[in-house]
Design a binder for these strands. Structure first.
Length: 254
DNA sequence: AAGGTCTACAACCGCGAGAGG
DNA sequence: TCCTCTCGCGGTTGTAGACCT
């Protein structure tokens, strides 16, 4: 069968974008909005494929992007979120306003990874390197299985079916670090990686809820990171996980 | 000053998911 | 139900500039 190419490669530019191309793309999106990436290049008079236009807009030209260095706050948050989500950069980016998945991915690979390694922490597992190595030797299978969403495909599912002791205590530790005691392990995790059926509880207090709505909580409190800790914004957001207030978390909206 | 190496990040590529015919 | 199209994601590559020898 085979896929049709996303564009006619023979007639498209590749490589770095010129200022003129940027201007054309921005002008076109301002006039017509985002979407229809496939037809956009032609409509905008660009010799680029739609994919390339989309990437350029999302990662570089979007007006709401926050350029510049990552703050320590963002740094911590990325590490925490990565320990939960793994390399789900779009999920992580969704919790960092003004940052793109590509930017976070690059930042992770160039800065944070190295920083963790230098501290003796395995960036993939967020555990001490020696412990991670031992755990890897004991049980190497990383399993996404949760019975319903058929993430595990060709792997031997029997090897995933029981939650192992060490990863369970590691997960408890991660939850304690994120101050999310309301998250129930059997619902959250079966294995070190991500079970997308995350569940959360409503915020602890109506007052915090109101502050959240009014935008009075600080960045950390609004995201629910390092909660259970009094903050100068006045928030002790015990319940809010990742800035969500209610219900069952749909991971795509995180 | 020149050449080699490293770092940071923009951009590309291939794949999977979802929508619609 | 199958097929095609489009979009979005994550991994990887390319390259300019910084740094080192």
């Amino acid at each position: 069968m085979g896929r049709s190419p996303c564009c006619e490669k023979a007639h498209t530019n590749k490589g770095a974008w010129t200022k003129e191309e940027d201007e054309r793309l921005v002008a076109h999106i301002r006039a017509h909005g985002e979407g229809c990436w496939r037809s956009l290049p032609k409509a905008a008079g660009l010799l680029r494929c739609g994919k390339s236009c989309r990437l350029r807009w999302i990662n570089y030209l979007r007006p709401d992007l926050k350029r510049g260095n990552f703050t320590d706050e963002e740094d911590d948050l990325i590490v925490n979120l990565h320990s939960l989500f793994g390399n789900k950069w779009s999920l992580i980016a969704g919790r960092l306003p003004g940052r793109t998945d590509n930017e976070i991915k690059n930042y992770w690979n160039t800065h944070i990874r190295r920083k963790l390694l230098s501290r003796g922490i395995d960036p993939a597992t967020h555990r001490p390197i020696s412990a991670a190595a031992a755990a890897a030797a004991a049980a190497t299978t990383v399993c996404f299985d949760n019975n319903k969403n058929d993430v595990v495909k060709d792997q031997d599912k029997s090897s995933c079916s029981s939650s192992d002791e060490s990863s369970s205590s590691w997960q408890q530790q991660q939850l304690r670090q994120l101050q999310m005691p309301q998250l129930q392990l059997p619902q959250l995790f079966r294995v070190p990686d991500l079970n997308l059926e995350l569940r959360i509880s409503p915020p602890e207090t109506a007052a915090d809820d109101r502050k959240m709505e009014a935008g009075l909580l600080c960045f950390r409190c609004s995201l629910g990171v390092d909660s259970n800790r009094e903050c100068e914004c006045g928030g002790i957001s015990k319940g809010g996980f990742l800035g969500l207030a209610t219900g069952v978390l749909d991971y795509r909206s995180v």
